[in-house]
Design a protein around this nucleic acid. Sequence first.
DNA 1: CGTCTTTGACCCGCGC
DNA 2: GCGCGGGTCAAAGACG
Length: 356
Amino acid sequence: MSSNERKDHLHHNYDPFQGFNRSSNTFPFFDDNNNNNNPSIYSNQLQSDASPVTQNFQGFDPSFMSFTDYLHGSAVDYNSFSKAFDMSCSSISDHVLSPQIDVDSGNSSKKIGATADNNNDVTENPSTPNSSVSSSSNEGAADEGSTKSSKKDKLPKASEDGGEDDKSKKVNKPKKEKRKREPRVAFLTKSEIDHLEDGYRWRKYGQKAVKNSPYPRSYYRCTSQKCGVKKRVERSFQDPSVVITTYEGQHNHHLPATLRGNAAMFSPSSLLASSAAAMGPGFPHDFLSQLLPPPSTASNNPAAAGGGGGASNNTTNSNLFYQSLAPPNQQQQQLQVPDYGLLQDLVSSFTHRQAP
DNA sequence: CGTCTTTGACCCGCGC
DNA sequence: GCGCGGGTCAAAGACG
């Protein structure tokens, strides 16, 4: 709520780069929902062709994201990163999806939906960071506790003594505190499937039509107990080949060990898993799981992909990170290997800053 | 039988 | 205050 609180939150270990393999060409965008309400966009899709999504870092203003807050806490020194962007944007622009800055005001109107619907807008108008940002990032957010409680207050229709409960519960309903919103991170992934497997188990709890978009938005929640991580999955309206996955919150657990053949159990995905583990449970594994080739046995194995809750078969996922990281022989049918050296530089550039 | 998805209804915050 | 839209709930059904 208060800026202090938000700062605190930033200091909590939400560091998507934590333990991240700096050598990979992943290019995360930090959200700083807490500050600006913009979910960071992890563009885990390298652009391989002339897809319309090819946009750029050009014009991307890191200060807008204040992702550096994640790295440095509140002491924002994003100059270096900004430079990194400036230096590299032109080169990587061909490979990375446009960073979509979610001008989310912490509430409804312009969330990822807007992101999805305005792929280009974002990049076209990145230079108005603050003006487009509502600082009410935490408002209207679905804080795990409060939201749920309030929702649960809702009386089941079939409840008999519901009337009473309903009333009493309504009475007991905690006074509206502004709901806190977890930090959110968005990933853009070029994929034919919507729900990308990430090693965690998710339960779909809702689906809503997105305004101005033919594609619905799906809501998932981590099935692990006490893990309040949520994610929203939707397809970009402007580029239907792009799936936008927005994570909210941090996993307070590791990859489900019992997952049937999930990525965590395999190699080289195990590498991924360990990286992910090193990253902390909060790191969105979608991001990583797309970086490495799926287990060879998993390519046709829904279970491996689905892991139960995931229920996704992302065998058709054409994530370019994955492509670019795949062994050369596996890349043959893929596109040109992107020049992600710059990305590396980029990443390491600000990672560098990250280190105290 | 347990788990997950679907889906309509509801809640909530915001803008007008 | 009202309407809109996002987000969530939870019953019912599907699936393995």
